[in-house]
Structures are given as structure tokens and as C-alpha cells.
Nucleic acid binder design. Structure first.
Length: 576
RNA sequence: GCCGGGAUAGCUCAUUUGGCAGAGCGGCGCACUCGUAAUGCGCAGGUGUCGGGUUCGAUUCCCGAUCCCGGCUCCA
């Protein structure tokens, strides 16, 4: 089934190319593969086109599809292929990269494309109501920014109209949850172009969320055997030369500032600082493992076109940690980090998690034997937790293998969050050692890990996962007290004060607006509990609860409500 | 950084051959005193992102910059 959709998408791409060549003669064609939700095709147009041209192209595609043209495969020699695509420079380049005897072309309705296949039988196998041209975008030929920029036409395509519609609905939902939109509506954060793009300003409500999150994060780390470090934001070039960052990471670092004729760099990573602390004294095998964590704020240069709300920024706080241990300890340590991470995601309400194991790339440092051991410990840990995983061959960093965890959000999108990375590089470069049982100085293992990834990005994903309706314990405002009329403001205020004393975040809505307006406001702010109070409640020391989800419960004793809320907060309940 | 599209009040958006810039929400004021998603009336709020150019005259046309959006590339 999945294969069929993919075939259909790929065949649709051919139809798109045919339509484009018909409507815009002289266009040069690039490649047109199937992608997760449809397909695309890259073109070099004689004159630029715009989104307004898409309907005409789509119409032409439908016409072609209706013609019921078979897709005919033919194997050709390299020589023949060159002749067939004599006026298509991109195809000629592709042909040069192919081996004689493996070259095939597909033809439908007189349009021939270089293609491995497979394809559907005829154009009729493409559902004309299950695809939709989406947008045009620039894309470099073969993804290389030094090569020509082509015009890519994207399309959604599915096996049925219903699936297309479901997908469009998901996209609409994603738009509704967009962290940039909700960040504004819920007054959580902002960015300021005049003060620097890609830098996040946390407003009081975002700040409240963050403080609660970090409080929990710290507690959990202490419980799990970590100590917490604080390190500087800048360091002299010596540090970055030693670490190698000035060699391989300079493109992402900001220009240095000069202090007393020395160059200082603002940190793009925390690791060198943690190592300084390690090297502040000698270490015995008895001291290990060390688990050192820091909510470390780093700054990285990101090219202007890639910044995106909270998801991609230039300054962010990693929930970073470094584990320094002996080779014998490494397996347990990895398993422990993974278990810890999964426990955190569970508390935060994310259930579907997938692991990606990245192995040794072409260029790498460290002995292969250590890589193998490290990889094995990663694999064992993943298997022990019963996680589904994929292996990304050669996808590791040059300094070590890693596990990345991708979490699935409420509308099915995957986000890479947790990363656990071995580092065979820094311990060497900084000459980190410990004294082993036998009195010999040995090199410890070092693992970098970030569980949430970065606080900013995590906040973005969290906002979108919950569509702004956070679990109670992380809500900036947990309770809104709404008097039915100004007469009951005093009682509302008393209730609010009482809740405040119990550390519940409450807002008494005492303006002279009407009750309905306040409810609407509180509802839009996604405040979990609205307490509506009037004559009856005042007389009986009760509250009337309106839940964020619309449920309602009247005549609840105030004490019962307090008990309920405190319990939900204490247990970090995901429901209300 | 590159391709394409944008930038108008705090927010969401109107404003055609180039001729004094408009609404809703929000804010402020006044009135209303209300039982589960918007009470009514009034007032204030703009160097139309910034810098050049064309023109008698530019929010509108042209050029450049900045930032934003969709992609490419990259990535926590």
C-alpha cells in the first residue's frame, strides 16, 4: 500500500513535468521524487513563474491524467540517453553519474523522463482529486548552494481524496497551534528585530512556565545523581583552540571581543567549561561517574533564512550535561540517561518516542574499538528500554556515535529532542585523566547529553503539542476567579487570596466587564479552572468550577476544590 | 546566505489608473450591576519598516537595506 502511494506520487511528478513542459516550452527539468506527503519537481524556467501559474499547471495535469496514458519503461544505453536528453543539461549530468546498463527511461503521453521507476500502469492510476499543487520554492540543484537555484513545485498527493483532506486538516491544525501565533496570543514571548532577530524575550507568563519547568528539571537531576554547574558565557580563544571549536565550529560562532588585548568568544557550547572544572583537580576512579548538568545558555550564528519562532533561534539554553566515567561504567551510564530521558518525556505527556542510532562517519577521531564499544552500549540501552529504533549509518559526529530521540506530538509530527553523544575528541584534546585502581592515569569516557534539547525549542514544541492548553502544573495561570457581578468582588478576592497562600497561581478578574466577557477571556487564555462565584457560593463558601475543556461543576466546597487542585499539581497530572 | 512572497494603529486586517489613511479587537473614560465564550456609548492611538530616487504630489511606481513568511542548506 505504502509502495503504491509512493509510485503514484512519483508518477504524478512525471505528469507535473509533462504539464510544465507543455505550458512553458524551453523549461529545463531537474529531478522529481516522491516525498512524505506528496512529491515535487525542480525546474529551470525560461522566465520566472509565480504561485498564480499553479492552477493552470494543475488543470493541465488533470487533462493528462484523464488521457489514460500508459507509463512505458525502456532500458537505454548511456549513448542513447545522452541523445534523448540532449537539451536537458541537468539530466545529462545525472546520466554521467550512472553506470552503463542501469539506465532506464519512462515515457507517458510523449513525455520521456530519465527514471529508475517504478511507476503506476497508466496516468489513470493517479487520483485526480487526491493531489494538489502546493507552492513554489527555490531549491539548489542537488542541494548545493554553489549550484544553480531551480524552481521547485511542491504538491500534496495521497491515495485517496479523504487522505488528502485529512492531511490538509492536519496542516490547518498545525497553523492553529503555531508557537509564534500562540506565543503572541498567550503573551508568552516575543522577538524584536530592532534588538536582534532570533533572540527570545520571555514575558512574565513564559517566564512562569520556564521557572516551573526548570525547578522540576533541577529536582529531577539531583534525584538522578547529577550535580549542577554554572559556567561563564565567554571564554578566551585558548579554550576554543584547545577544544577545536575554532577549527571545526567557527562558522557558527560569533566574532570575538577583545578584553585586555585577548580574544574572548561567546560560548556556542558548554562542554569546554565543564572540562575546566574537571581539570581543576585530579580524579580517582572512585570519583566516577561524574554527572554534571547545566542549563547553559549558548549563542550560535544561524543564517538569517533559517530562524523560526522558538524552534530555531540564535541564543538558547541547553539542558546540557556531561557524564564522565570509566569504560566499565559506560554501558550503565548510557542506559541510565536513556531511562531518565524517557521518564521526563512521560511526565511531560509525550508517549510516542523513537530512537535513531548514528554510527561512525568517514572522517572520525578515536579508535574503532572504542566506537564499537560505545555503539554497542547505545544499542543495548535502546533495546533494554524496548524502544523502536533505526540505525543511521555514518550519521554520527566525527567525535563519537550518538542516539537521538524523536518524539511525536499530538498531531503526528516528529521532533528531534533528546541527544546522547559520545565524545572521543575532547578528553584527548584537554588531556583529561583519572587514576585507575592500578595507579595508572587513564582517559575517561565522556558523554554529552541534552534531554529537552533546548528550553526555547522545547517550549515551542510543547506549545504546539498542547495547543497552548498546558498541563496544570506548568500553566502560568492556573485559576481565574470570576464574580458574576461586581457585588461579589470581595468574595472573589478573598478566594483568590486564599489560593495564593497555597501557592496556586490565581488571577481575580475584577474589572467592570461582564462575566461572560471574562469567561471568554479566561477561556482564550486557556486557564485550566475558572471559578464563577455569586450569591450562592458566597453564602455556602463554595465555588462553581468551569473547566478549560467546557465541563462545569457547581456548588463545590472551596476546600474540596483546593484539595483537588493541589493534588493535580503535586502529581503533575496531565488531566484536570 | 540563496529563490519566491511580504511589511499599513499594541493585535488581526482593509485602503487601485499616484491626490488629506480605515475597521474590528485591545487601551482609556462614562454609563450599565449582570449566573457560564464578547453590555452600550465616547475618546486617544499612524513619519504607512528604514534610506534613496521618479513626480507638483508617493502608503501606492523604481532602487537599496532590514526584518518576517514559504522553501533550499543547516540544525538544539
Amino acid at each position: 500500500m505504502a509502495v503504491d502511494v509512493e509510485r503514484m506520487r512519483h508518477s504524478s511528478a512525471h505528469v507535473l513535468a509533462e504539464a510544465v513542459l507543455k505550458l512553458f516550452p524551453g523549461t529545463k527539468v531537474g529531478i522529481g521524487p516522491a516525498i512524505d506527503d506528496g512529491f515535487y519537481y525542480d525546474f529551470l524556467f525560461p522566465t520566472p513563474i509565480t504561485n498564480e501559474d499553479l492552477p493552470a499547471i494543475e488543470k493541465e495535469m488533470r487533462r493528462i491524467i484523464a488521457g489514460n496514458h500508459p507509463f512505458v519503461r525502456r532500458e537505454v544505453s548511456k549513448e542513447e540517453a545522452r541523445k534523448l536528453f540532449a537539451d536537458q543539461p541537468f539530466k545529462l549530468e545525472l546520466i554521467e553519474g550512472l553506470e552503463e546498463g542501469t539506465i532506464s527511461v519512462y515515457e507517458q503521453d510523449g513525455f520521456i523522463d530519465l527514471c529508475r521507476g517504478p511507476h503506476v500502469e497508466t496516468t489513470r492510476d493517479i487520483r485526480p482529486d487526491a493531489f494538489k499543487l502546493r507552492t513554489i520554492a527555490g531549491a539548489y540543484w542537488r542541494g548545493d548552494e554553489k549550484r544553480p537555484m531551480l524552481t521547485r513545485i511542491y504538491a500534496y498527493a495521497f491515495a485517496s481524496k479523504a487522505e488528502l483532506e485529512a492531511h490538509l486538516k492536519m496542516l490547518e491544525e498545525a497553523e492553529r497551534r503555531d508557537n509564534r501565533k500562540l506565543g503572541k496570543e498567550l503573551d508568552l514571548f516575543s522577538t524584536h528585530e530592532e534588538a536582534g532577530p532570533g533572540l527570545i524575550y520571555w514575558h512574565p507568563k513564559g517566564g512562569r512556565f520556564r521557572v516551573e519547568l526548570e525547578k522540576w528539571w533541577r529536582d529531577e537531576h539531583f534525584k538522578n545523581g547529577y550535580e549542577i554547574l554554572f559556567t561563564p558565557h565567554i571564554g578566551k580563544s585558548w579554550l576554543w583552540e584547545t577544544s577545536g571549536h575554532l577549527g571545526f565550529y567557527k562558522g557558527n560562532m560569533y566574532s570575538p571581543m577583545t578584553i585586555d588585548e585577548e580574544d574572548y568568544y561567546i560560548k556556542p557550547m558548554n562542554c569546554p567549561f565543564h572540562i575546566m572544572i574537571y581539570k581543576n583537580s585530579t580524579h580517582s576512579y572512585r570519583d566516577l561517574p561524574l554527572r554534571w548538568a547545566e542549563l547553559g545558555t549558548v549563542y550560535r550564528y544561524e543564517r538569517s533564512g533559517v530562524l523560526h519562532g522558538l524552534m530555531r533561534v540564535r541564543g538558547f539554553t541547553q539542558d546540557d550535561a556531561h557524564i564522565i566515567c570509566t569504560p566499565e561504567q559506560i554501558e550503565d551510564e548510557i542506559a541510565e540517561v536513556l531511562r531518565f530521558s524517557l521518564a521526563m518525556w512521560k511526565t511531560l505527556g509525550f508517549k510516542e518516542i523513537k530512537a535513531y542510532l548514528a554510527t561512525r562517519p568517514q572522517d572520525s577521531v578515536g579508535e574503532p574499538a572504542r566506537w564499537d564499544q560505545a555503539l554497542e552500549s547505545l544499542r543495548k540501552a535502546v533495546e533494554k528500554e524496548g524502544l523502536a529504533y533505526e540505525v543511521d549509518e555514518g550519521g554520527g559526529a566525527f567525535y563519537g556515535p550518538k542516539i537521538d530521540l524523536k518524539i511525536k506530538d499530538a498531531i503526528g509530527r516528529e521532533w528531534q529532542m533528546t541527544t546522547i553523544q559520545f565524545d572521543f575528541n575532547l578528553p584527548e584534546r584537554f588531556d583529561m585523566t583519572y587514576t585507575d585502581k592500578d595507579g595508572q592515569l587513564k582517559r575517561p569516557y565522556m558523554v554529552h547529553r541534552a534531554l529537552l534539547g533546548s528550553i526555547e525549542r522545547f517550549f515551542g514544541v510543547f506549545i504546539e503539542h498542547y495547543a497552548g492548553a498546558f498541563p496544570l502544573w506548568l500553566c502560568p495561570e492556573q485559576v481565574a476567579v470570576i464574580p458574576v457581578a461586581p457585588t461579589f468582588s470581595d468574595y472573589a478576592k478573598k478566594i483568590a487570596d486564599e489560593l495564593k497562600k497555597r501557592d496556586i497561581r490565581v488571577k481575580a478578574m475584577l474589572s467592570d466587564e461582564r462575566m461572560n466577557a471574562k469567561i471568554r477571556d479566561a477561556q482564550n487564555q486557556k486557564i485550566p479552572y475558572m471559578l464563577v462565584v455569586g450569591q450562592k457560593e458566597m453564602e455556602e463558601n463554595q465555588v462553581s468550577i468551569r473547566y478549560r475543556d467546557g465541563r462545569q461543576e457547581n456548588g463545590v466546597s472551596f476546600e474540596r476544590f483546593v484539595g483537588q487542585v493541589l493534588d493535580k499539581i503535586a502529581t503533575k497530572a496531565l488531566d484536570l
